[in-house]
Design a protein around this nucleic acid. Structure first.
Length: 566
RNA sequence: GGGCCCGUAGCCCAGUCUGGAUAAGGCGACAGCCUUCUAAGCUGUAGAUCGUGGGUUCAAAUCCCACCGGGCCCA
């Protein structure tokens, strides 16, 4: 039995209560044991008695059996402190991992829940910038974690290939850059055209009418214009695909806004017929003020579509065609209100699945001076960042490996650069604004991606030199660093469970850093290959093996690759 | 005017959901450690009125209320 389970069982038996998770904690200091139970404080309140006395009474009744995980139980000022039989605990865990191998941490959810994670959603005709990167890393990592935990995940992308921004870009392209075509990174070039369009329109608002005309023609499927739209749209999409390939991010399905306009308009008609929507100032709206959600507009008064028009159609498609149970939307937090309105409207339209729609919001990537804006062209492009990261990583790789080939150095550098970038995006809580800082982003020491990769590379090197690993080991004596490391490994399955419930991907990044840190400490203090005591050596190899498995798993789930050397 | 998020050391950040013992790390600074499995590493020192003020509690960074500062959304 797991140690925590055992505490729940024995304390529960004596108090005749179900022991809650938050009554059990890990003490701040080793001298207080390995686990602590705070049940006496709560009981003291109810019984109006001294917690210390109650704790002592509980402990007096506990008889530890031979199979128990614990060697000792102590009461200190109301806390019931449990001390593990360290050697047994380590031996059990290590042997369990030797047996389970890569399956360690995988959850056994009986039924596979079909879950769609929609993320990335870049706009064509605009640049792919580091805000999209945050979104993409987050959605990809979440998908990987849910997949590992046995959810049936469908990864969806939803590029914005139609709408005002496209009309602006095409207007500027046709009016000022007709026929031009760059040789490479064509999507990036279109992004510049878009920024130029915004600038020109701002300077001369009379252009607005011309843009509107283009938008209208696009919705009416004007043949000539559609051909140009198709061509330029592909420029952007090709750029996105190149970036996803570099990031090793895959999608199972692409939805395009342009393909949802008509279906969306039909749903709006239906909503009007049902009386859920009504016309106000010429535009169909849903009045959600009864739910504190103001008014939700479904179409513009000129009949052109909005995000909402298309999102209604998309949701319907997700529910009906893909038969999903859960729908996760990874979208910036500025859209919180919008998604509340959308989900409520879906509910009113009779979609039961609306209650299983979840907006996973995250804050923006900003500059110290304020928001990035693709309109003003003040964005850090993905390629700009990636190029600099790769160059920096290349220098570092060269410093340490002067003899390897150019090709090999570039390959390793890319793995490190992409890892650093992803970790830099994933380690922060999603509610927190990331203030973009070149210096911090280009850091490869301390709490960074390369630190994690490095720990894993070190572990791999030891295992590679050792050869075949035994499938059962014994722990006669374990040192403090070893116990600390093994304890960190042991909480991995619980962590995965928690992330599946909270969608907090940064917990995994944080965990992995702590694990790598404990391993580096172990690496420094406990020689493995040169250890003379054979039994101890086998145990240490098992520790290295277990650490490698878990770090490798974490990095895989974060979407970070591991170089062969670095 | 209404709503949401953030505020923890010079800088960055975990912990807040589910209150618990001495607030965890990273960067930067200072002092050490490479003839021993890769120093992108390890060890130590200095650095925190947990935005402010109240409240609840045996116990508050964590829960409640008010306010201040920053960001976002709606009107």
């Amino acid at each position: 039995m797991e140690p925590i389970e055992e505490i729940k069982k024995i304390v529960g038996k004596i108090t005749k209560l179900e022991v809650k998770d938050n009554w059990i904690e890990v003490p701040p200091d080793k001298k207080f044991g390995d686990f602590s139970c705070t049940i006496a404080f709560d009981l003291a309140k109810e019984m109006k008695r001294n917690p210390n006395e109650i704790a002592n009474e509980i402990v007096k009744k506990i008889k530890l059996g031979k199979e128990s995980n614990f060697s000792k139980i102590e009461v200190i000022s109301g806390y019931i402190n449990f001390f593990l039989k360290k050697e047994e605990f380590c031996e059990n865990l290590l042997n369990k991992i030797l047996k389970e191998g890569k399956k360690f941490g995988r959850l056994n959810i009986g039924k596979r829940i079909r879950t769609m994670v929609e993320f990335s959603q870049p706009n064509t005709h605009k640049a792919f910038h580091i805000g999209h990167l945050r979104n993409t890393c987050l959605g990809d990592a979440l998908s990987r974690i849910l997949e590992f935990a046995n959810f049936d995940v469908i990864r969806a992308n939803y590029p914005g290939d139609i709408g005002t921004h496209v009309a602006r870009c095409l207007w500027c392209y046709l009016k000022f850059h007709r026929g031009e075509e760059p040789k490479e990174r064509k999507g990036e070039w279109l992004g510049k055209i878009y920024a130029e369009a915004c600038k020109r329109i701002e300077e001369n608002p009379a252009y607005e009418a011309e843009v509107k005309e283009i938008l209208k023609k696009l919705e009416e499927r004007d043949k000539k214009l559609i051909n140009i739209w198709r061509k330029t749209r592909k420029w952007s999409l090709d750029d996105f695909k190149r970036i996803y390939k570099e990031l090793d991010v895959k999608f199972d399905v692409y939805f395009f806004e342009s393909e949802l306009e008509r279906k969306g308009k039909r749903i709006v008609e239906e909503a009007l017929k049902k009386g859920i929507a009504k016309i106000s100032e010429g535009a169909p709206i849903v009045d959600l003020s009864a739910y504190g959600l103001d008014v939700f507009m479904l179409l513009r008064s000129d009949g052109t579509s909005l995000y909402s028009t298309k999102d209604l159609a998309l949701a319907k498609e997700k529910f009906e065609k893909y038969k999903i149970k859960k729908s996760i939307y990874v979208v910036g937090s500025e859209q919180k209100m919008y998604f509340q309105q959308l989900f409520k409207t879906l509910e009113l339209l009779g979609f039961k699945q609306a209650s299983d729609c979840y907006h996973l919001s995250y804050e923006l990537v900003m500059f110290e001076s304020g928001k990035m804006s693709s309109r003003e062209g003040t964005v850090v492009l993905y390629d700009e960042l990636a190029d600099k990261m790769k160059e920096k990583a290349y220098e570092e790789v060269r410093k340490r490996n002067p003899k390897i080939s150019e090709k090999e150095a570039r390959k390793i550098a890319e793995i490190i650069a992409i890892g650093a970038m992803k970790y830099g995006m994933l380690k922060f809580d999603n509610n927190k604004v990331i203030i973009f800082d070149w210096e911090k982003m280009l850091e490869f020491e301390g709490d960074t991606g390369p630190y994690l990769q490095y720990a894993c590379v070190r572990a791999n090197k030891i295992l590679e030199k050792y050869g075949e690993i035994e499938n059962k080991i014994r722990c006669n004596q374990v040192e403090e660093v070893e116990i600390e490391l093994i304890k960190q490994i042991s909480i991995f399955p619980a962590l995965i469970k928690k992330i599946c419930e909270t969608y907090k991907v940064n917990l995994l990044a944080d965990y992995c850093y702590r694990l790598a840190s404990k391993f580096n400490e172990f690496y420094d203090k406990c020689p493995v290959l040169s250890e003379k005591d054979e039994e101890k050596k086998r145990m240490r190899i098992a520790i290295v093996h277990a650490t490698k498995l878990v770090i490798e798993r974490c990095l895989l789930l974060l979407g970070i690759k591991i170089p062969e050397f670095m």
